[in-house]
């Protein structure tokens, strides 16, 4: 029984901005299915009234004082950029948001 379709994988890849090939789609759909089947076993666990855990020691109210720290030198900030222009990061045209 399949829990995840090829189309669903394609949709997820779009959400995740991954341009996957047809072969990858086929392979992933099958592999994800196996993994998801294993995850379905969690459904049988009774977690009513159980609080979630995200960290070993629950930490609360971890704050920073509002005191400025040095920023990166601009050259260092821009150095990693694949394409920069006039101290900004250059990107290709962004798809039209407006009709």
């Amino acid at each position: 029984m399949s829990t995840i379709s090829r189309e669903e994988v394609a949709h997820l890849a779009r959400l995740a901005r991954l341009e996957v090939t047809d072969e990858e789609l086929d392979a992933f759909a099958g592999q994800l299915d196996v993994i998801l089947q294993s995850m379905k076993t969690l459904a049988e666990v009774d977690t009513d009234g159980v609080q979630p855990t995200s960290h070993a020691v629950p930490l609360v109210n971890v704050f920073r004082e509002d005191q400025p720290q040095p920023s990166l030198p601009r050259d260092a900030a821009l150095a990693g950029g694949p394409d920069t222009f006039e101290d900004r990061f250059r990107v290709p045209r962004i798809l039209d948001e407006e009709a």
């Binding site: 969690l42 459904a43 666990v45 977690t47 159980v50 609080q51 979630p52 855990t53 995200s54």
Partner: peptide
């Protein structure tokens, strides 16, 4: 994700 975090508690 939510369920998994609860199972973490168990």
């Amino acid at each position: 994700y939510g369920k998994a975090q609860k199972v973490r508690t168990l």
